Amino acid sequence: MQRVNMIMAESPGLITICLLGYLLSAECTVFLDHENANKILNRPKRYNSGKLEEFVQGNLERECMEEKCSFEEAREVFENTERTTEFWKQYVDGDQCESNPCLNGGSCKDDINSYECWCPFGFEGKNCELDVTCNIKNGRCEQFCKNSADNKVVCSCTEGYRLAENQKSCEPAVPFPCGRVSVSQTSKLTRAETVFPDVDYVNSTEAETILDNITQSTQSFNDFTRVVGGEDAKPGQFPWQVVLNGKVDAFCGGSIVNEKWIVTAAHCVETGVKITVVAGEHNIEETEHTEQKRNVIRIIPHHNYNAAINKYNHDIALLELDEPLVLNSYVTPICIADKEYTNIFLKFGSGYVSGWGRVFHKGRSALVLQYLRVPLVDRATCLRSTKFTIYNNMFCAGFHEGGRDSCQGDSGGPHVTEVEGTSFLTGIISWGEECAMKGKYGIYTKVSRYVNWIKEKTKLT
Rank of each mutant, 00 (worst) to 15 (best):
Q2R: 15
M8S: 14
M8C: 11
A9D: 05
G13L: 14
G13N: 10
T16P: 06
L19I: 11
F31E: 15
H34G: 07
H34N: 13
L52F: 14
L52V: 06
L52A: 15
E53Q: 07
E54T: 12
F55T: 15
V56Q: 14
V56C: 04
G58T: 15
G58K: 14
N59S: 13
M65R: 15
S70M: 10
R75A: 15
E79V: 14
T81A: 08
T84G: 11
E86F: 04
K89G: 15
Q96S: 10
N104M: 02
S107Y: 06
I112R: 07
S114L: 07
E116C: 04
C119M: 00
P120W: 02
G122Q: 07
N127C: 02
C128N: 01
E129F: 01
I136F: 14
R140L: 10
R140G: 08
E142M: 09
N147E: 14
A149Q: 11
T158H: 09
N166P: 01
E171P: 03
V174R: 09
V174A: 09
P175I: 06
F176R: 05
P177R: 01
S182V: 09
V183K: 09
V183P: 09
Q185D: 09
T186Q: 13
V195Q: 14
Y201C: 07
V202E: 13
T209L: 13
L211N: 09
I214P: 13
I214R: 09
Q216I: 06
F221R: 12
T225H: 09
R226K: 10
V228T: 12
G230K: 12
D232H: 13
P235E: 07
G236P: 04
P239Y: 01
L244I: 08
K247W: 06
V248S: 11
V257T: 00
H267N: 04
H267C: 03
V269A: 09
V278K: 06
N283I: 08
N283T: 10
N283F: 10
T287Q: 12
K293N: 06
P301Y: 10
P301G: 04
P301A: 10
Y305K: 02
N306C: 05
I309N: 13
K311V: 07
D315N: 10
S329I: 04
S329Q: 07
C335R: 02
K339D: 07
E340Y: 12
N343G: 10
L346H: 05
F348E: 14
G349L: 03
W356M: 09
R358H: 13
K362I: 04
R364N: 14
S365F: 07
S365C: 04
Q370M: 05
Q370Y: 03
K387G: 09
K387P: 08
F388K: 12
F388S: 13
F395P: 00
C396R: 02
H400A: 14
H400Q: 13
G403N: 10
D405W: 08
D410A: 09
T417W: 01
E420M: 11
T426S: 03
G427I: 02
G427D: 01
S430W: 03
S430N: 10
E434M: 12
M437I: 13
K438H: 14
G439S: 14
G439C: 05
T445K: 00
R449D: 10
I454Y: 01
K455L: 09
K459M: 14
K459S: 15
